[in-house]
Amino acid sequence: MQVDKTELAREFINLVPQARALQLEITEIHDGIAVIRMPYDPALVGDPDTGVIHGGAVSTLMDTCGGAATMSHPSNPGGTATISLRIDYLRAATPGQAIVARAECHHVTRSVAFVRATAHDDDPDNPVATATGTFTVEGAT
């Protein structure tokens, strides 16, 4: 029987305490692409005047998604760690809506994986944030 890779990744992310605390859910993962959803949670609000989610939670979502994309890339045999991450906040996410990140590991060398990511709420044509990141390639000699 074929083991579903997405199912495996879901189980894997459930073992990460901070991912569980943010209720992150992998909805897609294959060939260097990962999509992760973070439901709206009042505990994650960064601006009490507006109810907008804190950028820090978006950082964790983007970082997790970038790492997952890197690990799902065919030429990356092992785990990964973030080297650097840059996030541009394009607009405030709409309070009450989930944030979905999509990361693409677009280039992998022997040592470094390069990732681009975007995040959006219920309006997929109008992203809330974009990110670029570099991640380690483990198992490289």
Partner: peptide, 22 residues
């Protein structure tokens, strides 16, 4: 709950970033 890599274990990179942003 701040852990991102349970094997090492290590803080989640996102948490470290969030801590710096806060």
């Amino acid at each position: 709950k701040l852990i991102g890599n349970p094997e090492l274990p290590a803080l989640h990179g996102g948490v470290t970033a969030a801590f710096l942003e806060v």
